[in-house]
Design a protein around this nucleic acid. Sequence first.
DNA 1: CATACCCCGGAAAGCGGTTTCTCAAGCCTC
DNA 2: GAGGCTTGAGAAACCGCTTTCCGGGGTATG
Lengths: 358, 358
Amino acid sequence: METGEHQSSLLMEPLPGSAARPAGSPARIADVAARAGVGVATVSRVLNGHASVRPSTRERVAEAIEALNYRPSSLARSLSLQRTMVVAALLPWFTNPSAVQRVRGIVDGLSGSPYDLMVFDIESEDRQRRAFELFDRGDRADGLLVVSTLPPEPEIDRIRAAGLPCVLVDAVHPCLPSIAVDDVAGGEIATRHLVELGHRRIALIGDPPPEFRFEWSRDRTRGYERALAAAGIEAREEYVREGTRLPHVARAVASELLSMTERPTAIFAASDTQALGALDAARAHGIRVPEELSVVGFDDIEVAGYVGLTTVRQPLLESGRRGAQLLLEALGGLSVEPLRELLPLELVVRSTTGPAPR
Amino acid sequence: METGEHQSSLLMEPLPGSAARPAGSPARIADVAARAGVGVATVSRVLNGHASVRPSTRERVAEAIEALNYRPSSLARSLSLQRTMVVAALLPWFTNPSAVQRVRGIVDGLSGSPYDLMVFDIESEDRQRRAFELFDRGDRADGLLVVSTLPPEPEIDRIRAAGLPCVLVDAVHPCLPSIAVDDVAGGEIATRHLVELGHRRIALIGDPPPEFRFEWSRDRTRGYERALAAAGIEAREEYVREGTRLPHVARAVASELLSMTERPTAIFAASDTQALGALDAARAHGIRVPEELSVVGFDDIEVAGYVGLTTVRQPLLESGRRGAQLLLEALGGLSVEPLRELLPLELVVRSTTGPAPR
DNA sequence: CATACCCCGGAAAGCGGTTTCTCAAGCCTC
DNA sequence: GAGGCTTGAGAAACCGCTTTCCGGGGTATG
């Protein structure tokens, strides 16, 4: 008796055709094949419109697919094909206004292409690690857009080793193509504007030091210092502050500045978000803008227009679009050199800057 | 001679250990196993901390992993495990402010959980179809959050058939748990506010008819009509307009309203975005707000505070957070009934509404 | 000294597809 | 009517990992 089921395969084989599976689980290609009375290869051929399948056979397969409400597993498909038709965008703080704008550009640049976009948040160190674990082998996505952050060095190695196309947006690395702006120049433009308005006591609110290896805030600071030097103004350490972009943090930092005995007459914020915090703080202190205090931001996010914020505009949307285009080219087989592409900056003067108070 | 290589496997086997592969491709588990002189099963055991592996063996494997810079393919892993540790959020217009806010809530609700979030845009019909093709079998993500849209009916069937946990946010369906607000009540609140200020000629700017099976705009319209009826005000068809949320569209629609011979004294916009468009249009027409025109929005997005827009606040962030929580519960094995959870609404009066002009 | 048991670790069977290889028909031509 | 070519379709290898199953070698026990 026992020996009767030694191999078992012959006994089990006939079953899987119909209701043999846990019932809850979706149909597999084998189920379809069984129902249509053909081999799995044929079903696959029908699915992918490959080669020649006799119309009558195709019909039978189509019916089986319909009847079983079958849809191939995109995961298994990707594994087999070594291709996902997905590109991933990895970005920290992906809910902040400028990031959103870049994503919008990416969506735009990808529209019409056969690739789908997956956006991945890497708010924390932990998520960052996990994001790269998911994507750096290139099996979850065919291409990567890394926005406003730099992958850890080992990840860069892995990405290059895997031959995974990757474009940086708002970040720069010698080994990878990137879309960015000249942050030093940007810092200079903003600061020079203030200098030309007669300001001498100019403060700066920057981002905290490189979490996520994020360096542009430092570059903007360098531009700020350079512009001050050019105007023969002494850079005062106590006028340079750092804080995250969280609204209340930015406000608190600005508030400190405005509480100083010799308070600045102008503030250059490394982002519009922080500039808005500064405006808030000024209002709270009863300081009039721009009569008593000038504020310049950076980015030109949508709100900036609404509140009349003077700012350095960078083409956020364009950066995403361009990054997507570059990535598509790389995916299309064109070899993209680690080119550093710079987008233009532009001072947008609105109503938060004015002549220095005398 | 020919017969010598009949099976080939014995001849080929020894090679894959080292440089046999295309060189560009990342190491596989077999490569690690070969280098460590163990079987793949052992490598897997080491990777997953499973069962007992002799320390010395573990060490050898670890070295091989290190040397080859190996990382398991998350794709293959998911296929084998039938689990991805990823939840997907599908949403249309995911770059619009209220959606962003909800996503922020989702991120928040998921933080601390072992699940990663993938955000997927379904701007167009096409993308929507593709998104569900990717996710409805549950092999790309373990759970779904569908935001501000309703999956097509066949997709809902498939999702349920696959036993894929799915929570709706800002949308309602009898078969799925959902987080939403009472849009009818919301429309009523906004409109009643205007009525109480003495307005009689109250216009409405709503969303275009159900693309993506999106119905709340209609509900808000119903609330608007109900409030008018309650006040004994005749609903005038020409005061009810529709348009997308694109800034210039909203502005154009509002502009039409403001050009009417008997123009409305108040506008209720079905979203803040559209309300902002209306404010823009008013400015262009030289119409003072709120003296000559009152405007009420819906959502209370961040900008609303900055520009002083009166609006009906819905807990955007909370909706995302709650949705994520519900999904996590479902993923944890708790059976979540298709419960319709309603979040509270609140009128926020700022400076764009005032007494009707006499 | 032989037997039982435990600890390790290898072989192999999935997971759900795609694709190559191979072979059986069917058709055409000479 | 036989041989070559095309067409159609199944078997099996493969994508890269997990896990079950099973056997070999060591130690403890009778």
